[in-house]
Design a protein around this nucleic acid. Structure first.
Lengths: 202, 202, 202, 202
DNA sequence: TATGAATGAGTATTCATTCAT
DNA sequence: TATGAATGAATACTCATTCAT
């Protein structure tokens, strides 16, 4: 029947269920049932449940993110322009993996026990370092974290707005760009204790 | 031995473990063991595992959030000043419940099966409606969601920065205020298709 | 509040629940809850769950059955008339304890672990011996067992017929009398292997 | 080791234990232990405990009873001869499932929570309708119920009599036939209040 | 490439019972 | 007369994983 594509089909169903019901709540039995195969068949293609989820990460986000990182690291020191292009590129690559991004956001606790979780965290950390000045003020660190977070979460939030997926991506991207731009202009953290709260953008 | 404080102690340990290891990964056995009581003792104080987690939400965030909402709803229509005060107040109330907020963020998948998850989502939705103009442009919707998100996540992110908890709160609050202020000034979504991408804050 | 009648109220509720949901399915928690007291209160009045159920048997059927037996044993050897009067008397005494009779019939398995079950069985055995001739043919043994059985089960079967409780009792009694009368007339088991199957009453 | 007969072996042991100790008192652990497998193995073959007991009913009584019913329904209106043949056939089919019949009789309370209990009750109701004239007098209803009851209970009662299983079945059958014959001859319920108690068979 | 059969360790939950107050 | 707090042992059930075929 199904030629050599079983592995792919497992990944598809798994991603769908993981995103929908969470990692721990999704059992291999369920995945197998939806596929019409036995649990044991899954074990022919993936050594463990963790192996299965890992394969999803590698194909869908770790690889793409590494490309963005490689591109950015070849271009140091990082100008504002580079930072914004990082956002552009990263935004594009995650928008192709929406369900997995949703999965990541909603299963942080589960990811803590998965080695792939560490890897993902590392990528985020690297990206963050690239768009954030070293010694940036605390507010600017927040801005940069927030920029990344925003791009992630906007992919699956705002369901009430009837906006299309690309529209949402663009909106999130714009806000992220503003946040990073704002952080960039402030430069390094000012003399400690001078952390005033008032506006100073633009 | 310990008088009437067992219930409280259960809640404390439970919150700690739920935040640290996640909802599904934390078994009642673990909680009981850490407390030095039997599982059955937990069931004397809480009818189910869900009941236990629910009690944490009610005491720590649902109640406080409702106060903020009540205050804000008594003050409609919502001026920018009101919006910013909502952020202030909400920021303060969640900063007292950091571990639970972390729990919420990292266990979204698990919360989907908990009735208290729905309740929490409803509060977020209401707060969002209060700080966001109806018919706001998509970017402004993103800004407002992001503001809330940012306040939440900053409480437990940025561990690398040696910042204290209050410092982090203030930094997140400031960014959140900027985002909401920015959204507020834009007013309703412009004529469709005029969604320009360039800067227009201030 | 409730004076000295708590013990009685426990028995009432317990009987009701035992009959309705079965012995094992009825927990002391349920009984206590329906009564508005704590489980521990039950333990003040009854040493164990078995003790509680035992008290019901003693008050409602063991005592009364013993009276019938005592009356019958004083009247040996047992004439047909005596046998029929046993049925009359026994019928009357169980009809006052319908729910318990139902309980007995539907919880035979549970009763096997209860010492009161043995006692009940002994009473049945004695009654049976009284209405059945020693060395009765197998069919006549069946008839006599059936007579007793019939009186029991008719108390709570035949719900479809709109008959009143006393009507049902009378009907069952009549059938029981016929069965015993029939058995009585046959006398001792005929020469073995002569057990013909056709009618031979009257 | 043992090929494909595990499922059967589970059923055998389960039936034995269910009959001996009752449904609720028999735990899956016990069944598994007696079989020398793990509890989980049972769950490979039966989805739930209820599923296991259901399989016993289907194989041993529901199916056979349905055959009797089908035969009888094809032969309406129901003559006395047909009625008696129903008893014959039903008697035969239950005598092959003695332990399950015992289980049914002694676990009525437990069966109330099992869907298979409802099904069994429905079969009994149908059989009863077939051997009992519509509008039969109350005594005759009792006779017919009693006939069924008697065939059931005689399979496992009368252990004191050294009679063999087939002898018992024949004895019960004979009594059942008499009861039904008697009921049949009376015809519909007489003018109310004419319910005389004396003999009037054949 | 898969399956059938099984396992071991775990889960949440329930129950009858106890005892100090 | 009762209760509040707890226990120990049990229960049905689920899961990721294994392995011979």
């Amino acid at each position: 029947m199904s030629r050599g594509n079983t592995r792919q089909r497992i990944q598809d169903i798994a991603l769908e269920l993981f995103a929908e019901r969470g990692y721990e709540k999704t059992s291999l039995r369920e995945i197998a049932e939806q596929l019409g195969v036995t649990k044991a068949a899954l074990y022919y293609h993936f050594k463990t449940k963790e192996d299965l989820v890992t394969s999803l990460f590698e194909d869908l986000v770790l690889g793409p993110a590494d490309e963005v990182i490689a591109w950015a690291e070849a271009r140091q020191p990082t100008t504002l322009e580079t930072k914004l292009e990082i956002l552009n590129r990263y935004s594009e690559c995650i928008s192709k993996a929406t369900p997995l991004v949703r999965f990541i956001h909603e299963n942080q606790a589960a990811l803590r026990d998965l080695s792939v979780g560490e890897q993902m965290k590392a990528r985020m950390f690297t990206l963050l370092k690239l768009i954030k000045d070293e010694d940036a003020a605390l507010t600017d660190q927040v801005r940069c974290s927030s920029a990344l977070f925003t791009m992630h979460s906007s992919l699956f939030t705002l369901e009430s707005s009837g906006a299309g997926i690309e529209e949402k991506r663009q909106a999130a991207l714009e806000v992220a760009r503003e946040l990073v731009t704002s952080a960039h202009h402030h430069g390094p953290a000012p003399r400690p204790a001078a952390e005033t709260s008032s506006a100073r953008h633009g």
